[in-house]
Design a binder for these strands. Structure first.
Lengths: 236, 236
DNA sequence: CAAGCAAGCTTGTATATACAACTATTGACC
DNA sequence: GGTCAATAGTTGTATATACAAGCTTGCTTG
């Protein structure tokens, strides 16, 4: 019998999942302790522990030292949405991707930008504009302000070859990021670039990224709502 | 000395993080093996292993049985965005939340709905509409179609007390979900409910949730872009 | 030279054990 | 009855060990 051998801790995990999914163990139910599970399944405590541990990381259980393990409350109070690199996404959809590099200059910062990028108002920052195409149609405008101190060679890159995002990731390892997603009406210039009516609602993602040395960049991604949407699929 | 004792595996994790953040270990660098780390830090292999394990789960490292442990590629090719329950979110912002329940009926399904909910075209589904307020202003319209077979008691609930989402989570433990985020223009009825101009772009999240028995519900969340945005903050 | 095999290193799973840290309950004492 | 302390039970950290499974390298052999 060439049966695939299932790890013991997986068997325990599956069992616990079943009890929760079937509703047998409801919210806040106490889950058997490590020692009890270990005896029930004839494994060592460390193996039973691993099952509980992994389910806790998945958010199915909650553990409290001294008190015990419990079924977590509402497993999906917040869902996670993946915001992908648009080039990858288009590629995965099997379509052709082409990026048009519009500008690549050094600009003075205004007050708001200075604060967002964590630089002084007198400093210069780099600005790049890349227009992403899918099947010869513009689909996303990527505007990016980059901290010139942290990434001095930014302007020398050719972003038809490597995306700004990829370059920045390789230059300054990221340690943190924030994203904000809004529905907006684009300004007239952006509408022209994206070839849309001025009344077309757009998805706009603002993303700030940090390396260990400070704020690296502020990216503003704008895409028309009738051509683009964010999607995700997740399993608990 | 009442010093907080740091766990050994945490010290190793911190060390590895530093090496990556500082750029000393770049992408695809080979990370010292469990045995080597164990000796370097004078701990057992299981302790060194735990450090590597946890960083792998965080996506900082990649491990391959037989080959070794390596620094992962581009840590942020896709960012994760948290889509929270609006009631929680408003609460966390310190504002008042009030939900107005508009409709709670049983409706016939059309073709598209039947497919999305995985029911036959002849079956009934439940429909609910809840308007969420923040500080007495409408901020999100929640429309929801619910599989009447899987959640038969749905219509009997009072959604001023418990949100549909919370009720569904408790009734039919979720195993899967998909989200889609779009920028749209709302129809005239929705504009009236949300008290916005018809030209106001809106964020619309479509969320389908599964339990182990099938598709539970399709939620359509619509919020005006000038009053609401999705945000997230994540650390690597 | 090429193919294939074997050795050695790596990660993966599992066990038994020990002690630390924390919680909740019980019971004694005031 | 209320307060406090001891206790039993639970999770958290750490070690030493053993074997399984997969990759890499280098050597043997045809």
């Amino acid at each position: 019998m060439a049966q695939v051998k299932t790890a013991k801790f997986t068997i325990i995990k599956d069992h616990i999942c079943k009890m929760i999914e079937s509703g047998e163990w409801v919210q806040h139910s106490k889950v058997p302790s490590e020692n009890v599970l270990a005896e029930q399944f004839s494994v060592s405590r460390m193996t039973a522990r691993r099952a509980l541990q992994e389910l806790t990381e998945q958010g199915l259980l909650v553990r409290s030292q001294g008190a015990g393990t419990f079924v977590a409350t509402f497993k999906s109070q917040s869902s996670l949405l993946e915001i992908r690199n648009i080039a990858d996404e288009i590629h995965d959809r099997g379509h052709q991707h082409h990026a048009l590099q519009l500008e690549l200059i050094s600009v003075d910062v205004n007050n708001e930008l200075a604060i967002l990028l964590g630089v002084k108002e007198s400093e210069k920052v780099y600005y790049s504009e890349v227009l992403h195409f899918e099947n010869n149609e513009p689909i996303q405008l990527e505007q990016r302000y980059v901290n010139s101190t942290l990434v001095p060679e930014y302007l020398q890159q050719n972003f038809a070859q490597i995306t700004p995002h990829e370059y920045l990731s390789s230059e300054a390892p990221l340690t943190e990021a924030t994203n904000e997603v809004e529905a907006i009406l684009a300004n007239s210039e952006t509408c022209l670039q994206l070839n849309i009516e001025s009344s077309t609602p757009c998805l706009q993602v603002k993303r700030r990224t940090w390396s260990s040395k400070g704020v690296v960049s502020l990216a503003i991604l704008t895409a028309p709502g009738n051509k683009y949407r964010l999607g995700s699929h997740l399993t608990f």
